[in-house]
């Protein structure tokens, strides 16, 4: 069907190495068990699961931060276990992390956007041009001279996205990037990722434990105990509320309302997943 996926995860298994001797000698459980997943260029994928389900571990395999124990991950056909290809892979797949602070390296906003480009030894004028575009794309140009500790959590995550965008990647992974933000910033960052997918055709992998953030995705994958247990479009996934609850996911009240109304005999479209869509559906 699809000629070549951007990221091709083939039957990977991964176990975290034991960190200290003090822990029990028993082998720590497998973080990933025989996971296969293909991500197409331009796709918006949401990876859902509760804390400890393996979703972050999976995400970290996509830009060679982790190398599978068995199986392999190909990014644009390059094997992540091949050290020589890792920089090319990270140029193509950028990542933003959970803690907004611990990924910002430079002391001023614009320097941080430029940092990854400087590390790669690009010429100064090219850096300046790309930094400008990246800052505009996430609307933080007005903050350029500020030190990071003067930014809000949401602004820090925008900065992190700009730092990745400046590298002109094909894919951005947001690894729980919204979980430490307030609800409004959370929505803004989700909307920004959606917009980058729509406007620039970027592949987005949005790792989250919040169902409402997955509503705009094209495809949803749900993980539990290191395995993919559900996969499909948001509209099919969101109908099985009982199953979602079993997977320790919080059901947003509007979604629950729709489901209960449907159970009570109302006909409501399965596509009604966001507040706006639900309103439209009910008013109709």
């Amino acid at each position: 069907m699809n000629a070549s996926p951007l990221i091709d995860i083939q039957q990977i298994t991964y176990t975290y190495p034991l960190q200290n001797k003090g822990k029990s000698k028993a082998q720590s459980p497998k973080a990933l068990q025989n996971v296969s997943l293909q991500i197409q260029p331009g796709e918006y994928l949401a990876v859902l699961g509760h804390n400890g389900s393996g979703k972050s571990t999976l995400a970290r395999h996509c830009n060679a931060l982790l190398i599978p124990d068995s199986g392999r991950v190909l990014v644009k056909g390059l094997d992540t276990s091949n050290k020589a290809d890792q920089r090319a892979i990270r140029d193509c797949v950028g990542m933003i992390f959970q803690n907004p602070d611990n990924q910002i390296i430079a002391t001023v906003v614009e320097d941080d956007v430029a940092w990854a480009l400087a590390v790669r030894g690009l010429p100064v004028n090219l850096i300046a041009e790309r930094v400008e575009q990246a800052m505009n794309a996430v609307s933080i140009s007005h903050l350029r001279k500020l030190p990071p500790h003067h930014l809000s959590g949401g602004q820090k995550q925008r900065l992190a996205i700009a730092g990745v965008l400046a590298l002109r990647p094909q894919c951005i992974i947001a690894d729980e990037a919204t979980s430490q933000l307030d609800p409004l910033s959370r929505r803004e960052i989700t909307a920004l990722l959606h917009q980058l997918n729509q406007d620039l055709g970027l592949t987005i992998i949005h790792v989250t434990h919040l169902l409402e953030e997955a509503a705009l995705a094209q495809r949803v994958v749900i993980m539990e105990q290191g395995r993919i247990v559900m996969e499909g479009t948001p509209s099919t996934i969101f109908t099985d509320i009982e199953r979602l609850r079993q997977l320790k996911l919080a059901i947003p009240e509007p979604i629950e309302l729709v489901s209960r109304l449907r159970a009570a005999g109302l006909t409501l479209s399965r596509e009604a997943l966001t507040v706006d869509a639900i309103v439209r559906e009910i008013v109709r």
């Binding site: 409004l184 509007p254 309302l257 209960r260 507040v275 706006d276 008013v283």
Partner: peptide, 26 residues
Amino acid sequence: TEPPLSELLIQLHKQGLAIPLDVFTL
């Protein structure tokens, strides 16, 4: 922002649905 449910109900109200605004629980 309001909690998602209140937000939904407020929007429905704005669309002209006769839903009382003090509705609060699911």
